[in-house]
Design a binder for these strands. Sequence first.
DNA 1: ACCTGAACACCGTTCAAGT
DNA 2: ACCTGAACACCGTTCAAGT
Lengths: 226, 226
Amino acid sequence: MSSTATHTKRRRAPLSRERVLRAAVALADERGIEELTMRKLAKELGVEAMSLYNHVAHRGDLLDGMIDLVFGEIDPPAAGGDWKAELRKRAVSTRAALLRHRWAVGQMEGRTSHGPANLKVHDAILGCLRAAGFSIEMTVSAMSMQDAYIYGFALQQTDMSSQTPEDFAAVAQQQMVDYAEALADYPNLVEVVGGHVAKAGYDYEAEFLFGLDLILDGLERRLSAR
Amino acid sequence: MSSTATHTKRRRAPLSRERVLRAAVALADERGIEELTMRKLAKELGVEAMSLYNHVAHRGDLLDGMIDLVFGEIDPPAAGGDWKAELRKRAVSTRAALLRHRWAVGQMEGRTSHGPANLKVHDAILGCLRAAGFSIEMTVSAMSMQDAYIYGFALQQTDMSSQTPEDFAAVAQQQMVDYAEALADYPNLVEVVGGHVAKAGYDYEAEFLFGLDLILDGLERRLSAR
DNA sequence: ACCTGAACACCGTTCAAGT
DNA sequence: ACCTGAACACCGTTCAAGT
């Protein structure tokens, strides 16, 4: 058809859904979700925006695919072993994936389609809980609760620009200054944030584990109280 | 200045930040957050888009203001009474506010400014926990954990179009059909969702309270174990 | 089968101009 | 002080046309 001379332009790996999704995740990770537009993504791939529609149905489909790539990074828990340790590992690994891809948790709202990686992880969680001896009803409750906590914690962590305890302390200190004239209305914030957090900071990892272990302990108690 | 004859057009209440924010919340509630554009909001208020910029700095400022209106609907817990009952009431009231305004939880990601209603509720939570006898460190952990759970649960509830247990069962049933050929890979989903949820449904309210009480009980246990 | 140019119907925001 | 028209630099998506 076309002579070899006509396309001396830089060779491009052919587009595929996989390649589009991976490029989209990379772009959102690096520049934020609001910078992820069909046009910019296409440019990143050396192609025009309209070509993307050969591989994703629309922007919502793109986001569904991206989110399932994030789920693919989660370690699914094994069934039959130490269920608490397995679920703890999965929770930590989920949080890590959501931290690597900070845009992800904010995009889960309203998204009703669930990809295969999502289904696989949740199937494994259900299997782990059932093997541990939880009733079907308790299994549903236990999984919902853990997901709510994990996603909610990740959501909160995007609320603050600071990530290390020291950063957090600095931000808290600055906020005490910024809100100075209103502080009389918030005596407990002054005591707890001004008096403690602004000095000691806030350790996201430790706080996450505190709540996670409280939940797992509570579930274990309800399991043995049957 | 201008004669009375020159503006016989329909009298409009003058714009104000308050009026702009309330109209924005109403529009987002009714038509969804993606329908909330500066132009459509302006039209709703009988004005041009550019007039809004006299009352909000930009779209992000608009969203910050809207979210603080949602926080204003939350019952703050009282300090000194039955702390578990107070915090339970606050959690239920927060969830109710987030259900009335389904767009809200998805907009919390990355939002770093906190309005007065937000600060007021959180000050009250801290006060309640301190009065109950929690150390400053535990107070921080307890509040973070409750917020994470509440927001995360609300986020999950936007993932499903169905709200009543019966709706949920119908959706679960349909999904079993849709995913039929992949179901061999997910034996636990088949057992738990196919065998139970698709029949009994899923009661969001009951599930929320299950996790909430597990958390409050766990916190109480850690309080008395000091 | 896959890619593209042009076009459509939108966005948020700015700026100078009106009252 | 508050509102607006026109404009700028974008969006997602469709469609007919190219190879």
